[in-house]
């Protein structure tokens, strides 16, 4: 099973994970990742600028297709019982969950690996763009070379 949802409204990661575990009672391992909105921009909070809010733009249609394709690639690498991806778009405030990835497998190593693979590829392939609002106005977030490097390490 695979569930992919791109939605504007907020979601409760705990409730999502509970229902994901409940529908996979025979999976030995469930790994999850939750990405939350930071309240600063830059390497650290001390050096960074305060970010009050964010808007996430996305490409409807392609985003869902791309996430579906990433899950297919993950399934070619690991025997996954179930995968869940939830990704927000629209206005966000610090602390909001932006993304949730959950992978259910027989054993933990595949669950950890699949979760990390999906996040690393999502960051560089899924068509979403963040615009951060600071005291200087709103600016588009620039892609990080470190994200490309993380995705590249999964290339066979």
């Amino acid at each position: 099973m695979t569930t992919i949802r791109v939605q504007q409204h907020a979601f409760d990661p705990g409730a999502e994970i509970n229902s994901f575990c409940a529908r996979n009672p025979t999976s030995g391992g469930v790994a999850t990742f939750i990405g939350q909105m930071r309240d600063f921009r830059g390497p650290t909070r001390a050096e960074g600028e305060t970010v009050a809010a964010m808007t996430l733009e996305y490409y409807p249609g392609m985003a869902e297709r791309q996430l579906d394709d990433l899950v297919k690639q993950a399934r070619e690498r690991w025997p996954l019982d179930d995968v869940l991806i939830v990704h927000r778009h629209g206005p966000l405030v610090p602390g909001d969950a932006i993304v949730l990835v959950a992978a259910a497998t027989a054993h933990r190593s595949e669950a950890f690996a699949a979760c990390e693979f999906l996040m690393d590829w999502l960051k560089t392939q899924a068509p979403f763009w963040k615009k951060e609002a600071t005291s200087d106005g709103a600016t588009w977030v620039e892609a990080q070379a470190s994200d490309d490097a993380r995705a590249a390490k999964w290339k066979k």
Binding site: G35, L56, Y58, Y59, M62, H87, I98, V99, M119, L122, K123, T124, Q125, A126, P127, F128, W129, K130, W140, V141, E142, A143
Partner: peptide, 9 residues
Amino acid sequence: AFFPPVTGG
């Protein structure tokens, strides 16, 4: 479609 490098997640 044309867009900048993606920054989701």
